[in-house]
């Protein structure tokens, strides 16, 4: 994602990247990024929590003012669960199963899995 942001920015359009993988984003170095320390796949907030999603995006937009040189990475203050940080121990670690891993090359697997396919 950061690679695409770099090309867009190079073409003259300012970009803002959300990220939950600090090390990856720091290495790829998109022009302007914010770090949200949530489990992967929740970069814009928790599912079904519109107020939190709104807050994260509004805070992220502050990067357009706060970041003043290329490649800076702003950390947002949001915490996934103040009482439980156990997700940090296993997120994307060995053994954690994502939907479709190893099977998604099958035609239509994702659609069947996610019940988003139309009639067969």
């Amino acid at each position: 994602m950061g690679l695409i942001a770099r090309e867009i920015e190079r073409a003259g359009i300012p970009t803002l990247c959300l990220s939950s993988a600090w090390d990856v984003t720091f290495a790829v170095r998109p022009p302007r990024a914010v770090f949200v320390n949530f489990p992967l796949n929740h970069e814009a907030g928790k599912a079904g929590e519109a107020p939190l999603q709104r807050r994260i995006l509004l805070d992220a937009f502050r990067a357009f003012e706060a970041l003043w040189a290329p490649g800076q990475l702003l950390t947002l203050p949001h915490v996934w669960d103040p009482a439980d940080r156990s997700w940090e121990e296993f997120d994307y670690g060995p053994g954690q199963v994502g939907y479709g891993v190893g099977q998604s090359v099958q035609e239509g697997y994702e659609e069947r899995r996610l019940r988003r396919a139309g009639p067969p």
Binding site: R6, A27, V28, R29, P31, P70, G71
Partner: peptide, 10 residues
Amino acid sequence: WALNHEAPWT
């Protein structure tokens, strides 16, 4: 992983 030491800026 891609590793960049600079970034474009607009």
